[in-house]
Design a protein around this nucleic acid. Sequence first.
DNA 1: TGGGAAATTTAGTTTAGCCTAAATTATATT
DNA 2: AATATAATTTAGGCTAAACTAAATTTCCCA
Lengths: 225, 225
Amino acid sequence: MLRENLTVAIEDYLKTIHELTLTDGRATTNRIAECLEVTPASVTGMIQRLASADPPLVAYHKHHGAKLTPDGERAALEVIRHHRLLETFLQQTLGYTWDEVHAEADRLEHVISEELEERIAQSLGNPTQDPHGEPIPNRELQLPEQSWVRLSDLAPGQRAAVQRVGSPTPELLRYLSSIGMVPTTGLAILDRSEFDDNLRIQIENQPEPVVLGLKVTQQVYVEVV
Amino acid sequence: MLRENLTVAIEDYLKTIHELTLTDGRATTNRIAECLEVTPASVTGMIQRLASADPPLVAYHKHHGAKLTPDGERAALEVIRHHRLLETFLQQTLGYTWDEVHAEADRLEHVISEELEERIAQSLGNPTQDPHGEPIPNRELQLPEQSWVRLSDLAPGQRAAVQRVGSPTPELLRYLSSIGMVPTTGLAILDRSEFDDNLRIQIENQPEPVVLGLKVTQQVYVEVV
DNA sequence: TGGGAAATTTAGTTTAGCCTAAATTATATT
DNA sequence: AATATAATTTAGGCTAAACTAAATTTCCCA
Ligand SMILES: [Mn+2]
Ligand SMILES: [Mn+2]
Ligand SMILES: [Mn+2]
Ligand SMILES: [Mn+2]
């Protein structure tokens, strides 16, 4: 099953399975259903089709979720490269803000040709990160190893640089912009509240510290310095 | 039936019906089928769906082809604006040549948002023509009146400027580039052959005249000067 | 270790959009 | 006006991708 006969639905499933495998360690039927906003029954149907495709795109064991085959992995990375290049292009070249790029890229990613992918990459100077700090697979579809530490895992006294934002909803992104917390920004943990795990954080170049709850700090990944 | 629930197939049908109506004066089942490379039976099925949509997008009289309703016309122009803006953008901003832009635009036209349409238009300075010389509907979806004269209709002695190229296949476009005949180029008819209607033409800035057959001259539209 | 809740799969439908083959209608020619 | 040919529609079928409802399996805990 070459790239040409992958449908939009299939590409979305592969991308979701890839991302769930990275974040959760596995991709279960119900999690996939949640991410794609379809019913679990629909996911089972699709997983079974993907597993019996030629060549198979996922390995399927009843009641135990889906795992990408090398072919499925390659197809997923291709879509992810499209997505992240598009997000970067929309921001750099067309003046979108980082909270506006996702929905547009989510549709365009399935229809751009390899030619357009390459021209976009060239015109941007082959970027390695998208606006949310996510790494862009290179031309050979390789991703750098990611060492991920959640902001929520830091202890008072630690210093770090913002790396990327996971599940970047427009609302979260606009909020982060407003407090000056974007990829590469430096920060220092001042203290942690007893019960609710709120963090008081001093953000680089900001006059006042902010207090952030888990809803925010679990979505922000950092590099400890 | 708002823009949101128009499928790719529907948009392609509406666009084709619009273009056939302009070029042939009407859109028959078989011509639509040819253009879209589907069977006539499929076209009948789709026309009937479009006619009974709410609101109807075409007027349908059995055995007499389809005519766009105002709603259908609006939807068609929306897709055509997308298509021609995209072609222009691909050429101007990403360095595509005029024979490469069509296929890419044909897929992208269905998935870009109004927001992206507007940003592309802005970044290009609201162009009024695409790379093939076709007019781009403005923001209100108005098209300028077109006075079309085919190059093949000119008589020896007449002078004209190239306006646009109809049904622009990549092969035709590459050929026209190679002889220096692109929109706005000036030319003069030297003479016409007796039986085959070949035209001998002097093209502006070219050392030698060229002889072109109907296959070419019927696809090139000009403005007599 | 045996239920019960949660997760997952099966079975049966639906809709869009295409197909082929056969039937029908329009048009053109004599 | 009758008939041949071309254009179009009808009938029936297929695949992709979704859904709901019911059945089944897994897993966790008392
Ligand atoms: Mn998508
Ligand atoms: Mn690619
Ligand atoms: Mn199209
Ligand atoms: Mn538009």
